[in-house]
Amino acid sequence: MHYVESGAGPPLVLLHAFPVDERMWRDARAELEGRFRVVTPDQRGLGRSTLDGSPSAGPENQRRAGVEETDTPSLDSAAEDVLALLDHLELSRVHLGGCSMGGYVAMSVLRRAPERVAGLVLADTRPDADGEEQRRNRLSVAERAEREGVRGWLAENSLPGLLGRTTWEQRPEVVRTARTLVEEQPPEGVAWAQRAMAARPDGSEVLRTYEGPALVLRGEEDTLSSAEVARDMAALMPHARSVTLPEAGHLAPLENPSAFAAAVGDWLAELT
């Protein structure tokens, strides 16, 4: 499993959204690594992590850990990758955060090993499973990615919903970055992730039984995860705080990294 690690202090593991990779955290990391040990893995099959856990090339400051591929795409396998990475880094407990799909994986980690999660950050995500129509759409995207690759259509289809209005109007460099990240994803990883998300269970009960501190973040311009979804998700957890990130959509940590880093940093500072 490919990952990037920087900074020193309480460990903070951040799981990226779909269909991008750990590079979405670059600017937020720069603002957090002065106070925290930030670890950002590429999830299975995306970025520079392979589907089978085999080594991938990378700069010296980027290291890998992972487990073998399973036959059936499942976010439980992605969660096992994260737990294997924590073992590799000798981290018994971490503050765990995830954006969108990364939030789904974080909930799966919480389901499998709640004792490893000292604090939970859920950004622009939701606990419920896909409905039938969304599941069909995911499987259709998976098949097209395998058939055609992802260049020329995945970014065009996904970015309008992923980025907020302010980003489209005022941040052309962020739009370019997001487009590049989407177009550089391996088609087989895109397909695997879509099938894994389509098969994910409802995570509401996992959150309901979680008694640790939690931070729920939502970009105020997010059209995929509504304010009601964020509010109801926070209400499931007895020790959750909810924060709205201004001028950002579904990829809020990429669109407004300063607001994301400030919210997470202040919350972690109170905890630690």
Rank of each mutant, 00 (worst) to 15 (best):
V4D: 02
E5D: 14
S6V: 03
A8G: 02
P10H: 14
P11S: 15
V13F: 09
V13D: 02
L14F: 12
H16E: 11
H16V: 06
A17M: 09
D27C: 05
D27L: 04
A28T: 00
R29G: 08
E31H: 12
R37V: 02
V38G: 01
T40K: 13
R44H: 09
G45H: 08
L46Y: 02
R48Q: 15
D52K: 13
P55E: 13
R63E: 12
A65G: 13
G66R: 02
T72N: 05
S74P: 09
D76M: 05
S77T: 13
E80G: 09
D81R: 00
D81N: 09
V82Q: 01
L89M: 11
L91K: 02
L91R: 02
V94M: 09
V94T: 03
L96R: 03
G97L: 04
C99R: 01
S100C: 13
M101G: 10
A106Y: 00
V109A: 06
A113Y: 06
P114Q: 15
E115T: 11
R116H: 11
V117C: 07
A118H: 10
G119L: 09
L120G: 06
A123D: 02
R126N: 13
D128W: 10
D130E: 15
G131W: 10
G131P: 12
N137D: 14
N137K: 13
L139A: 10
V141T: 10
A145C: 12
E146V: 11
E148D: 15
G149V: 08
G152Q: 08
W153K: 12
N157C: 06
L159A: 07
W168L: 06
Q170A: 15
E173R: 13
V174Y: 00
V175Y: 08
A178E: 04
R179S: 14
T180R: 15
V182P: 01
P186C: 03
P187F: 10
E188K: 09
V190L: 07
V190T: 06
A191I: 12
Q194E: 11
Q194S: 05
Q194K: 09
R195L: 08
A196H: 08
A196L: 07
A196C: 11
M197R: 10
M197W: 01
G203A: 10
S204H: 05
V206Y: 03
T209C: 05
L217R: 00
E221P: 04
D222T: 03
S225Q: 06
E228M: 11
A234S: 14
A234E: 07
M237E: 14
A240Q: 12
R241F: 04
V243C: 05
V243S: 07
T244Y: 01
T244N: 04
L245Y: 06
L251T: 03
A252Q: 00
P253Y: 01
E255M: 07
P257R: 02
A261F: 00
D266T: 15
W267K: 08
L268G: 02
A269H: 05
E270Q: 13
